[in-house]
Design a protein around this nucleic acid. Structure first.
Lengths: 148, 148
DNA sequence: CTACATAGTCAAGCAGCTTGACCAAGCTAA
DNA sequence: TTAGCTTGGTCAAGCTGCTTGACTATGTAG
């Protein structure tokens, strides 16, 4: 693989990622929710039984202070609520509210729309599956990172 | 395509993009340059004959003030220099210095390394080419956007 | 020559993150 | 039990990279 090809792949990957993020966010907003992309990553983690602030921080790859601020923002907007943690009085369990679930579904729908469009560009859902499988194989574990 | 599949693709795409960005930057730093990911996008544009601040701003999808600050930073670090623009006394042409070219090559090498690794994960360079072609087809034109 | 558009800078402000200090609650060992 | 350390979370201050707004200098169209 030549360097220039590596750069072409890099540019295409980042362009696709940025475009996808933007359009999912636009779709969420169009469905009546206000948000920023980071919400989606938080929701992904919260949608499986809730999480503590520290869990979220790890998942997002930020400090717990930053995660705490994000949670505060989500509480203010009515997407999540803090509950006492069963079994650890220090911790608080952050869970999605009904509105939070609605926002999550909106994000899913918006994502599905974009990917539907990609399927048309690529010539079929099979091609999308190939893409997803390839990306899954190269995607690392660990915290989510901003693409730049 | 079901919603959950769309989310899986989204997550994998963003994880791959974030990982790639991070590792290219790490590679650049390991080669003795200091930088942040945005530099790479600027260099991509500058490497084709230089650009004005306004060109850069458009390419990066930010205000010209932000682009101007970035250029100032790059000048301070010795990666670019400002020259009078031939044919427009208002404008200044920002061009890469020798050190700037070195940093650009370092980024190319770092990118090639990561993608070499991806080729092994995917089982061959042919698979990488498939990935690149697919991404190229779905990647939009227009300014580069942060992935989140 | 006038009027407007464009390239660039200066200044102020803001969002989202960081580091550092701290408290309350849990854990471990004596 | 208690002493000492770890862990979950918050408060406060500060920084970075962006924004909007105001402005100057140069170009361009009538």
């Amino acid at each position: 693989m030549q360097n220039s090809e590596a750069l072409a792949l890099t540019a295409a990957l980042l362009a696709a990622a940025g475009d996808l993020t933007q359009r999912i966010n636009d779709g969420v907003v169009a469905r009546g929710f206000e948000g920023r992309p980071a919400y989606g990553f938080a929701f992904t983690r919260l949608s499986r039984g809730g999480a503590t602030v520290t869990d979220l921080a790890t998942h997002l790859g930020v400090t717990k202070q930053a995660a705490s601020q994000l949670v505060e923002e989500l509480v203010r907007k009515g997407y999540v609520e803090r509950r006492p943690h069963p079994g650890d009085a220090r911790a608080r369990l952050v869970v999605l509210t009904e509105r939070g679930w609605g926002c999550t579904r909106a994000a899913e729908e918006a994502a599905a729309e974009v990917i539907q469009e990609w399927a048309e560009l690529l010539g079929g859902e099979g091609e999308v599956r190939v893409l997803r499988d390839q990306l899954t194989r190269i995607a690392p574990y660990g915290p989510i990172r901003p693409a730049w």
